[in-house]
Amino acid sequence: MFPWRKCERGLVLTFLLMAMVLLLPLTSYGFEGDLESLLNDDYGDEEVVALIADPLEPVNRVFFTFNDSLYYWVVKPVGKVYSSILAEDIRTCISDAFHNILAPVRVVNHLLQGELRDSGTELSRFVINTTFGAGGLGDPAGEEFGIMRKKADFGQTLGKYGVGNGLYICWPVIGPSSARDSLGLVGDYFLNPLFWGLKGQGELANELFVLKYENEATLHGDKYEAIIDEAIDPYVSMRDIYVQYRQGLINNRPKAGSNGRTKPDSFRPEEDCPGFVYADRYDNKIKARHHEQCRNIDGFQDKLVRYTRAGKVYYGVSFPERY
């Protein structure tokens, strides 16, 4: 299965050495998150420049069509059968387990990025989920302790050290990537415990890959379909989404609500009624009352609240904290 197995140790060492030599001197760089930069968007009359060079577009488009066909003709129909056998909860468990086992990739990359705290977060998530979460099948770290996932991969690490995207590559099966992120995939592969654990068991490794692929597709396939459905040119749309998304991860833009669990927001009367989530000034009181009744039937203890702001009367429904 892996024709380069004989020299893999040498490769790994070379790769790690290269990474260390190239990256360690730069670890003092700070990467400040900058949400405000989103406001630098005063587009003038300038030419729209593609976010990534795509000289391989004709080949990439062929692979894009291949992947699209693979999804609609194979992955989706198989996924239907698969989903009918395994309930969504179980599929989520499988997804969590795969995510959990890949923790070393995130721990090491956060370290390389100088993000000690995030590295620790991923490490504690791994420990908690492996022990209390039955080997990662559950996510008690997130659900009980509020320690949320922190993404990191080697492509992102390289990006943070200033390595550009390079070319856009749409790989068959794997999908959108860039030259930098493809190199990143190779790096992450060596940090993948499954790679070391399944040495010499190529067939099992393949089966696990297919399981992970199919499982994720049943959980997130609708997002892919939505992107394709709304696009005027699905290939360009997907390429652009990929680059924008990756750039966001590299810029370290603080994700809204990333400090763990955020309570649903309210207008102003939080002090009086914690957990206030609903207010309506369009059809005001009647709707709020109707909402209150519906909620109470559903088992929520809601309370109609009236308050004024800027001279206007608002009505809403508050209920005890759910998050």
């Binding site: 729209v48 593609a50 976010l51 005027i232 040119d233 360009v236 749309s237 652009d240």
Partner: peptide
């Protein structure tokens, strides 16, 4: 931004 890329190319 996503629509910009698509529209420009088309």
């Amino acid at each position: 931004g996503n629509y910009r890329s698509q529209f420009a190319q088309v």
